[in-house]
Design a protein around this nucleic acid. Structure first.
Length: 455
RNA sequence: GGUCCCUUCGUCUAACGGUUAGGACAUCGCCCUUUCACGGCGGCAAUACGAGUUCGAAUCUCGUAGGGAUCACCA
């Protein structure tokens, strides 16, 4: 049997971390089993679905490189097929027309909540003698017996059928609900494994009844635990980025993001196995944890930093230039690329380099901070003397180093008496990468200009 | 409230019923060092609680507490 999985988000909000991880798991499971991974946009609720949300889903999946193997399916376009199934269930007496008005329904809901019994419309047992077009179609849930789901993550879980409510499968405007659409689409798309968030677990017991009535094959279920914020509550806007694509904008690489998402719930013996390329051949559902994990940005930072350090400088350069929309000259490019390795030692996200971009690319860079200006004015002579020394220096890191040391020796100075000063003059900052490297990369001309600048 | 699920260092997690309960991140200390860092070495730190089964329980059973999901003409 060929494995077919799907990621089926509803475009009513952004693609969040939990959704992205669900997509990842579906993708990896399909890859591992030489199967197919599909994406279906569940836009049956036209009022709440937005084009922006659809775009956000595409952006997120594209960035993470977990794209559908085939053309993306839009659920709204399959509407007629869903309706047909609803009427077929009606004809077979597995469903019924319910003419309850909102007030009656509300009364019923209050009552059922009080008594702890599920909603079953009185129309369930009535002989249809009503010509009104104002009805919904409800599924006739079994009244007794038990339903068991053999979930790949949650294990075997059983419920009593009497707790099932007669859910609506066709609304009064004759559009299908998610409960129906999802099942029909999964069948039509030949989905063999349904890997989705645990918030759908309760739905599985209800949806499986439709499948049984229709005599379709029951897919393999795997309900994966949700991701929580650091405070243990459901991940939301309060916890920072709600859209996974925002992490791209913040300077995280997709490799790091996938690696991190994979660790949330899945585990393996070897650290290297969390890399997406290895996970494709190792992923398995039975290694997924049942308990929800908390999102920890520090771990993500650490992973991102590791990936950045293993990447080629040109690649990182591309990422920086693309995200900042900078158009650099060859000289600027060379300076930036030469400094990237120094920055990699100290940053978590590549956008942090942008904080230093000014002094790297701008040849006419000048210090603005008032405190720093005072220091530069006070030590003006010192700056000029160092500049003179550098002027006579052969331009290599070793020569620059010995030249500076020689100057210090002659004047009985210590490095920490000129270090901060040089840093301020050259970068406008008090903390920066190795000063010798900075001098070397900026070049003689720029260094002299900055050291001799008349503040 | 009903139903279902979960609970190992701060976090992510590992551990055929037999381990000094392991690793990673974070944190702390030391070393290195011209700043901030990197790096090296080391430390702190967990089986939610209570019973039971067993020679032996993180692991199996029951109970308690806490947390989560869900109960729409949303998905």
């Amino acid at each position: 049997m060929k494995v077919i999985t799907r990621f089926a988000p509803s475009p009513t909000g952004y693609l969040h971390l939990g959704g992205a991880r669900t997509a990842l798991f579906n993708y990896l499971f399909a890859k591992k089993n030489n199967g197919t991974y599909l994406v279906r946009i569940e836009d049956t609720d036209i009022k709440r679905s937005t084009p922006e949300a659809v775009q956000a889903i595409h952006d997120g999946l594209n960035w993470l490189k977990i794209n559908s193997s085939e053309e993306i399916v839009y659920q709204s376009k399959q509407k007629n097929k869903h309706m047909d199934v609803a009427y077929k269930l009606l004809e077979s007496n597995f469903a019924y027309k319910c003419y309850l008005n909102p007030d009656e329904l509300n009364a019923l809901r209050v009552k059922s909540r009080e008594n702890g019994i599920p909603i079953k419309s009185p129309w369930r047992n009535k002989v249809i003698n009503n010509n009104s077009k104002n009805f919904v179609i409800r599924l006739k849930m079994p009244l007794n017996g038990i339903t068991t789901i053999n979930d790949m993550v949650q294990g075997d879980v059983s419920i009593n059928n009497e707790i099932l409510d007669d859910m609506i499968i066709l609304r009064s405007d004759k559009t299908p609900t998610y409960m129906l659409s999802s099942v029909v689409d999964d069948f039509n798309m030949g989905i063999t494994h349904i890997i989705r968030g645990n918030d759908h677990f309760n739905n599985a017991f209800r949806q499986i009844q439709i499948i049984k009535y229709l005599n379709w094959d029951i897919p393999v279920y795997a309900h994966i635990p949700l991701i929580h914020g650091p405070d243990g509550t459901k991940l939301s806007k309060r916890h920072g980025a709600t859209n996974v694509y925002d992490y791209h904008k913040m300077g995280y690489t997709f490799e790091a993001m996938c690696n991190y998402m994979l660790r949330l719930g899945w585990s393996t013996d070897n650290e290297l196995d969390y890399d997406i390329s290895n996970a494709k051949s190792l992923f398995s559902l039975n290694k997924i944890n049942k308990s929800p994990a908390k999102f920890d940005i520090k771990k993500l930072n650490n992973i991102n930093s590791m990936y950045l350090n293993s990447m080629h400088i040109d690649k990182i350069y591309e990422l920086i230039v693309t995200i900042s929309e900078l158009n650099l000259s060859l000289k600027q490019e060379v300076r930036l690329k030469s400094l990237i390795p120094e920055f990699l030692k100290r940053i978590n996200v590549y956008t942090e380099i942008l904080d230093d971009i000014e002094w790297i690319i701008n040849e006419d860079f000048a210090v603005k901070n008032e405190e720093h200006l005072i220091k530069l004015r006070n030590d003006k002579i010192l700056c000029q003397e160092i500049a003179e020394n550098l002027m006579q220096c052969k331009w290599s890191k070793e020569e620059i180093d010995t030249s500076l040391k020689e100057y210090l020796r002659k004047n009985s100075l210590k490095f920490n008496q000129i270090g901060p000063l040089l840093r301020i003059a050259l970068t406008g900052k008090t903390n920066s990468p190795d000063i010798i490297t900075i001098i070397y990369v900026l070049g003689c001309e720029i260094c002299l200009k900055r050291l001799n600048y008349n503040y």
